[in-house]
Simulated scan of single mutants.
Amino acid sequence: MQAELFIDGGVGFFPGLARPVVLDGNDLSAEERDELSRLVSAARAEPAAARGAASKPVPDGRTYRIRITSPDGTNELKSADPSIPPAFSALMAFIKQRGHR
């Protein structure tokens, strides 16, 4: 499984310099791979309304996309400031902590 975190927007955002944070499951220990799978399942299970963009745009707000590639295929989860659901936030933190640009 591979996860890519894309962050768009915010103060000082330069699209040409924005690169995703990439996390390759092959670089993780067995326990970390299990945790990644659990976090992905939890984020996928959150209601679609909770993952969608904010109803009102936030000045200098950020949007977040997590692209998950696994043997089952590729799908993308999305969220935006100011309300990021807890499971999405936990997955995003895991990717930031263990991934690389």
Results as ranks from 00 to 15, higher is better:
residue 56 K to R: 10
residue 64 Y to G: 00
residue 51 R to Q: 01
residue 42 A to D: 06
residue 47 P to Q: 11
residue 44 R to C: 05
residue 3 A to W: 11
residue 27 D to T: 12
residue 82 P to M: 11
residue 11 V to R: 13
residue 5 L to M: 08
residue 52 G to I: 00
residue 52 G to V: 01
residue 43 A to E: 06
residue 87 A to I: 00
residue 13 F to L: 12
residue 59 P to A: 11
residue 26 N to D: 14
residue 21 V to M: 05
residue 50 A to P: 05
residue 80 A to H: 10
residue 16 G to C: 09
residue 21 V to Q: 09
residue 39 L to K: 09
residue 7 I to M: 05
residue 66 I to Q: 04
residue 14 F to P: 08
residue 51 R to G: 00
residue 83 S to V: 14
residue 66 I to G: 03
residue 1 M to T: 07
residue 14 F to W: 13
residue 80 A to C: 08
residue 45 A to F: 07
residue 1 M to D: 11
residue 59 P to G: 06
residue 78 K to G: 03
residue 51 R to L: 03
residue 36 L to M: 15
residue 22 V to C: 06
residue 30 A to Y: 14
residue 15 P to A: 12
residue 80 A to N: 07
residue 80 A to G: 13
residue 25 G to N: 05
residue 15 P to W: 12
residue 77 L to Q: 00
residue 32 E to F: 08
residue 7 I to A: 00
residue 77 L to W: 02
residue 98 R to N: 15
residue 69 T to Y: 07
residue 94 F to L: 07
residue 53 A to L: 05
residue 18 A to K: 12
residue 94 F to C: 03
residue 96 K to R: 14
residue 92 M to G: 02
residue 98 R to Y: 14
residue 98 R to F: 11
residue 18 A to S: 15
residue 4 E to M: 09
residue 71 P to T: 12
residue 24 D to A: 08
residue 59 P to D: 05
